[in-house]
Nucleic acid binder design. Structure first.
Lengths: 190, 190
DNA sequence: TCAGGGTCTGACCGATCGGTCAGGCATGCT
DNA sequence: AGCATGCCTGACCGATCGGTCAGACCCTGA
């Protein structure tokens, strides 16, 4: 199966995207991807060092922007952190719906691997920000429900237009988030 | 490793619960369970027909109550359906936190198997009820965010006392759910 | 004493997984 | 022509998976 142009790499990426989205990362074998492309499994491993390299390349843009959101969050507290986190996360989730769908359900498990430890930490900071940097259980619960729920919903509604999905999520987040005081922990006002 | 009393079966169930909760259903091998119990893999398969039978036995009580909630939903529409679904689902999610944690993340995949097709249908009806039986995207989005978010949150906060978790989730659900007209489909007013 | 049934096990099976490797083929440079 | 290089492949590897099976062990009842 000789190919005229060296587009194989791109085709592998595209096929991997489809298969990961359909059956998950763990549920997709290199053979599955190779079959969909129409090449051999060895060819897939010629273009990518291993299965994980495929996933990381697919997720790279999303991770970059997630880190940017995390950076934008530093220094913010209370309501400001809450709103920045909510708006920023909804935006990311909507735009990177496909990427979220790729690792659907396998998020907790993938995060446990050391390579993704920093993402784990980012998502924790995101949760704290959404909770307005409060330890109050109700705020933590609301923050986690939103984070997890928005991710899953975006993965589920891959075909809904951005213009419908985004405002619906933003409105929901505004309704759901508990208002918090401006200086939450041990607040004395500066 | 002879055992004095025939408690092996129970020990296997307990070990399976711990392992599934720690590394997921797919991420746990029969050998893992056998090692934790201190018996052979063959013994696990002597007491349970196969791996799936272990899971279904673990999930049976939760599934039964989920079906009961589904039954209580029939005939209800609009606000009544919304509130019954929200209260009922929060209650189930809180009480069966451990069971949710067992299949964490693998829900979509497990649902795809024909044995669990009826649960798939129940969760769809639950989502419709939470949305107040409306097709409006905003309502469907809110319903799915709540369903997925509450499940994940309960699985995450396994150690939070019911008395804290339940009211936090109920308050959140009440805030998050869009009010819907009483007779939603083909509505003209509002 | 012996038979039978419940419990448990090691050895084994076929399938599938991610990954390796030596080599084949086409192309383009020298 | 000869050679290097990029692309691709079949054959193969060790590991692990869920599951099977013949038989060993122990207890009980006749």
């Amino acid at each position: 199966m000789r190919r005229a142009e060296p587009e194989t790499r791109g085709e592998i990426l595209a096929a991997a995207t489809r298969r990961f989205a359909a059956t998950g990362y763990r549920g997709t074998s290199l053979q599955d991807i190779a079959t969909e492309v129409g090449c051999s499994k060895a060819t897939v491993l010629y273009h990518f060092a291993n299965k994980e390299a495929l996933l990381t390349e697919l997720m790279a843009p999303a991770i970059t922007e997630l880190q940017a959101l995390d950076a934008a969050l530093t220094g913010l507290t209370g309501r400001a952190a809450q709103q920045t986190a909510a708006d920023g996360f909804v935006d990311l989730a909507v735009r990177f719906r496909r990427e979220i769908a790729l690792i659907r359900g396998e998020f907790p498990e993938l995060l446990r691997q050391p390579e993704f430890a920093h993402i784990q930490r980012i998502s924790e900071r995101l949760r704290d920000a959404l909770a307005g940097n409060t330890d109050r259980p109700a705020a933590q619960v609301a923050a986690l429900v939103l984070l997890a729920g928005i991710s899953e919903t975006c993965a589920e509604f891959v075909d809904m237009p951005d213009a419908e999905l985004r405002p619906a999520l933003l409105a929901l987040a505004r309704r759901a988030l508990e208002p918090v005081p401006e200086h939450p922990t041990q607040d004395k006002e500066t």
